[in-house]
Design a binder for these strands. Structure first.
Length: 620
RNA sequence: GCCCCGGUAGCUCAGCCCGGUAGAGCGCCGCACUGGUAAUGCGGAGGUCCCGGGUUCAAAUCCCGGCCGGGGCUCCA
């Protein structure tokens, strides 16, 4: 319900013609009215209000009373006014709501008039023009819907199992997790259960917020919306490396085809509207040229549209599609915490279109395996959670156990009594951060409902159109991986160990420090040699002492620091300070070999900051 | 959305309780030092104390209102 409240010196209306086929009946005396010193309440009853009229009436009368007390008019006039909203309630419900609102306000002892409903009316209004003379209120039905959903969830409770890396299965009851000795072996999993499943949230801000700024990676941007971040050069480099690696896994390992689809969709397109409806108030909407659009909150929008007109035959399946694109979700303002949850983020999504359940399960296991590879490459320890429809689990237990064994980690299994969503099995790689909070990284979902509902088909052996099994998946947002990487490092700080980033993701992999400007040329030569091999090396050419330069390199978490002076030049060796380990003398080739081993097949990008430290601006 | 906290130099913050010329560290600039594995020394520049109103001889400081930000809670097909 929308209310526009105007405190008027005078308000006068006169009924003209019918605006609806069956307007409210009015006697002669209600056809014309003139009131002085009146609070005019232009009122629009909206579609959503029908869900809980009692609530809306109660809130609206409260709002009116509140304004009344502030401006003290001598009367109230409720005026039906359809033009405050685009989603109107049905006329009968609207009239009912207005009548009840009138009664409710009158009950409270005010002088109330109500203009007739369903008529075109002429009116004149003289607004008093004081600061409180023009106000608006919006009343939304919400609370009750949520309660209803919660009831449904608790109605049928899930059972839980724990599968150890060797395949041993345990029944567990979440509320009694302290009683299971087996869980003591897996503290991360236990913490995850406490936080995610039992709702015991941490009370401290996660460490990555401090680190992302300290390392000059990422920062808040107050000029944008909440949850939209700025990336400094080093952060942008990490983001690009991760995107590159995600793409590499998608294309080379998984064999997907990379596509691109629009960011913006028409809300009046039926399939878009249907998907958007599921998301309720979590999407970004904008109006352009009188048309309503929605920003993509997932990759499905454009992909499914594309697949609708794609001709696929049974010989081509599984068809795997990959997209790496920004998504936007209007998460609640209070829920956006650093990089843990954003309103704008970059999603690598893969969808596999399969012939049958068997092929779907094969694809599922492949995705599972390669998503684990990404986490391993980043040095991130994660928790595995499967959510499975019970009957499916009983029949395919071994298939799940094989995956669990493959990653060598225990898995929590939630058994759902029956199908609740479109998937029959899904898993999540969950991360537990330095303060005990958690976030989902990647997920794979096996959708066994026929793809026909999306209008997606393939042609079978007999030339017939058939729906397929869809495996939906996301490698997890790039920003969230950065969160996990920083939090993983923060856990080392807590344990008193030297925090590090994986070498392939370090914005500067090698820092060369000449002992004095005399050795600058040699330092540049070493940096150039490393650069030729595809590594990122810069030179600290500032007029500082060696100690000060070492300190800078350490605070930047640079994995290799090379000091070059007289000794190194005469002996032809490098003095290499390895982060967290100490100083080792080695030849340039040995350093290159180490870097090759550590970076391996991961992407290599050049420095995003100047080669000479003296030329680098300070961002934070 | 709700609750709590915050906004003072580029950054991190002190000063506010108890009103009286605006502070520190880091960073930045300059000078000296040609340096050996976590901070060389000295000097300098830099401020709409978030905005508006009120109280007062006088407001960064007290009061009221607002804006912005952060955290927590709720939520997360």
């Amino acid at each position: 319900m929308k209310l526009l409240l105007i405190h008027a010196d005078v308000f006068e209306y006169e009924v003209k013609e019918k605006a609806l086929p069956h307007p409210e009946e009015v006697n002669e005396e209600r056809k014309k009215l003139k009131v002085n010193d009146v609070l005019v309440v232009f009122t629009t009853v909206e579609k959503d209000d029908e869900d809980d009229i009692d609530y809306v009436i109660a809130e609206a009368s409260k709002a009116i009373e509140e304004v009344y007390n502030k401006v003290s008019p001598s009367a109230i006039l409720i005026y039906p006014y359809a033009h405050l909203s685009t989603e109107l309630a049905s006329p009968s419900k609207a009239l009912e709501a207005l009548r009840r609102l009138e009664d409710k306000v009158r009950e409270r002892g005010y002088v109330v008039f109500r203009a007739p409903f369903g008529w075109y009316k002429a009116f004149t209004l003289r607004c008093k023009g004081h600061p409180l003379s023009e106000l608006s209120r919006t009343i939304k039905v919400k609370e009750r819907k949520i309660e209803v959903e919660k009831e449904e969830e608790t109605a049928e409770k899930s059972e839980y199992r724990l599968i150890e890396p060797d395949g041993t299965e345990h029944h567990i009851v979440l509320e009694r997790i302290d009683e299971y000795e087996v869980l003591d072996k897996y503290p991360l999993l236990k913490q995850f259960i406490l936080c995610e499943e039992l709702g015991k949230k941490p009370h401290r801000p996660p460490e990555h917020i401090r680190l992302m700024r300290k390392l000059e990676l990422v920062d808040y941007e107050p000029a944008s919306d909440i949850g939209h971040f700025r990336f400094y050069p080093k952060g942008e480099l990490i983001k690009d490396l991760l995107e590159e690696y995600a793409t590499q896994i998608a294309i080379k390992d998984i064999g997907a085809m990379k596509i691109g689809t629009p960011m913006l969709y028409k809300l009046d397109e039926p399939d878009i509207a249907e998907q958007a409806a599921k998301f309720r108030e979590r999407d970004y909407r904008l109006k352009v040229g009188g048309r309503e659009f929605v920003l993509r909150f997932a990759g499905d929008f454009g992909l499914f549209r594309m697949m609708k007109t794609t001709i696929m035959t049974y010989r081509q399946l599984p068809v795997r599609m990959y997209e790496l694109a920004p998504s936007f979700r209007l998460e609640q303002s209070g829920e956006c915490v650093g990089l843990r949850r954003l309103r704008a983020f970059t999603m690598p999504d893969i969808h596999c279109f399969c012939r049958d359940l068997k092929q779907g399960m094969e694809e599922y296991a492949r995705l599972f395996k390669y998503y684990a590879k990404l986490a391993d490459a980043m040095g991130i320890d994660y928790v595995v959670v499967f959510r499975v429809v019970k009957s499916f689990y009983e029949e395919n237990k071994e298939w799940i156990k094989e995956m669990v064994k493959g990653v060598g980690k225990p898995a929590l299994i939630e058994l759902l009594p029956r199908m609740k969503h479109y998937w029959i099995v899904k898993h999540e790689f969950q991360f537990v951060d330095s303060v005990g909070g958690n976030a989902q990284l990647s997920t794979v979902q096996l959708d066994i409902e026929d793809s026909e509902r999306y209008g997606i088909y393939y042609v079978d052996e007999h030339g017939e159109k058939r729906g397929c099994i869809i495996v939906h998946s996301s490698m997890g947002s790039i920003e969230r991986w950065i969160y996990a990487m920083l939090e993983q490092a923060a856990k080392d700080i807590v344990k008193g160990r030297t925090p590090k980033l994986p070498t392939w993701l370090s914005p500067i992999q090698v820092r060369i420090i000449p002992v004095s400007s005399e050795y600058l040329k040699h330092a540049i030569d070493v940096a150039d040699a490393l650069e030729k091999h595809g590594f990122r090396a810069d030179v600290d050419d500032r007029e500082e002492t060696v100690s000060a330069k070492i300190r800078s390199a350490e605070t930047e978490w640079i994995p290799y620091v090379v000091v070059i002076g007289k000794k190194e030049i005469s002996q032809g060796v490098l003095s290499v300070r390895i982060r967290g380990k100490g100083i080792v003398e080695m030849k340039l080739e040995e350093l290159v070999k180490r870097l090759e081993e550590e970076v391996g097949d991961k992407p290599r990008l050049p420095l995003y900051t100047p080669k000479f430290l003296s030329l680098k601006p300070r961002f934070v």
